[in-house]
């Protein structure tokens, strides 16, 4: 299957949008060659601000630019974007609903070699808990491109979480995209898998495994972690036998918790959560090794689905 780099798509999107929209400014904390914001520097050097290795100042400076009418995008690794500058995001960006676009790059375990200090298991969870913040988690490069455009017309702050590695492309360039919507990638009738980011890829593979075992799995791409619309969830759980959620993030305060919290007491279906089990990452030679170690492969998702469906069979 064709794979593409999400961060390259992010950098290229900034350049393309920056051509017509001269209010776009880009800030970076010495990681532009990883986040690919360096492409914007090459194209529009006067609108690119290398802030040095100072993420807190970068966040607040971006806020000041937004309050003065600019549309700032700032990027760094997700762990620093969300963690190092939490209070700056909270006070200077989220409270005043400043139009700052924050890119948390190399999210989750995707920066496999650098280990736990550079892998972010909680960035999206933290960002979702901040009022006024919109949180996006694209599943592929094509969706990343669409999100950058959607962010431009969106009012208020947005956090976008971007995987470091090339991922298979499941979304189409010519279909509509809207912040806050879920997108069904594969139709199925037995179990619905709500997946986000890289886990869309793993869930699609899991659906193949399940199909071979006679189970029909639906895969829904939850690329907007916030806002998360209850009516969308209910639409996809209707008629299913079980629910699975899949995220490359800590299970506490993540997508699984959020979906469960919205439908608890209304949807009476077995529920399984595939996520990182409240632990930090670790170094590895490759991304796949880490996904295996942390229980985030197609096999884990398929087993979770089988387990959930079996629970229902026992109960009935």
């Amino acid at each position: 299957m064709e794979t593409k780099s999400l961060r390259l798509a992010y950098g290229e999107a900034l350049v393309e949008e920056g051509r017509a929209n001269t209010d776009i400014v880009v800030l970076e904390a010495d990681l532009g060659k990883s986040t690919m914001s360096c492409l914007f520097k090459d194209a529009y050097p006067e609108r690119y601000f290398e802030m040095g290795i100072a993420e807190q100042n970068m966040a607040s400076t971006a806020a000041g630019m937004a309050l003065a009418g600019k549309v700032p995008f700032y990027s760094t690794f997700a762990v620093f974007a969300a963690g190092r500058a939490y209070d700056q995001i909270r006070c200077a960006i989220a409270i005043p609903e400043a139009n700052v676009r924050i890119c948390g790059s190399s999210c989750g375990l995707s920066d496999f070699g650098d280990g736990k200090t550079h892998q972010s298991v909680e960035d999206a969870n933290i960002m979702c808990s901040i009022p006024n913040m919109t949180v996006l988690n694209p599943c592929d490069a094509v969706e990343t491109r669409k999100m950058v455009r959607a962010m431009l017309s969106h009012k208020g702050p947005v956090y976008i979480r971007i995987n470091r590695n090339e991922l298979p492309v499941y979304t189409a360039a010519d279909t509509d995209y809207e912040i806050g919507r879920m997108y069904r990638i594969r139709k199925g009738s037995d179990v619905v898998i709500f997946a986000t980011g890289s886990m869309v890829w793993k869930s699609m593979l899991a659906a193949d495994l399940l199909e071979a075992a006679g189970i029909s799995a639906e895969v829904v791409n939850v690329s907007s972690l916030k806002p998360l619309r209850k009516e969308e969830i209910l639409k996809y759980t209707l008629g299913k036998k079980a629910i699975v959620t899949a995220e490359e993030a800590n299970r506490i305060g993540g997508l699984g918790c959020a979906i469960a919290g919205l439908i608890i007491g209304e949807v009476h279906l077995p529920f399984a959560q595939v996520a990182i089990d409240d632990q930090f990452g670790t170094s590895a030679y490759g991304y796949d090794e880490l996904l295996e170690r942390y229980g985030l492969t197609e096999r884990h998702i398929a087993e979770a689905a089988c387990g959930a469906i079996a629970k229902r069979a026992i109960r009935h």
Binding site: V25, E46, R47, F49, Q56, N57, A59, S60, T61, A62, A63, G64, M65, A66, L67, A68, G69, K70, P72, D87, Q88, R90, C91, A92, I95, P96
Partner: peptide, 25 residues
């Protein structure tokens, strides 16, 4: 009021952002 402040240490950064934006314009 031009910025949300009170969590100390952040106002100068916000001001620098405003100054850079005004200079660009």
């Amino acid at each position: 009021i031009e910025a949300v402040t009170g969590s100390l240490g952040q106002g100068l950064s916000i001001g620098v952002g405003m100054a850079l934006a005004l200079r660009l314009e």
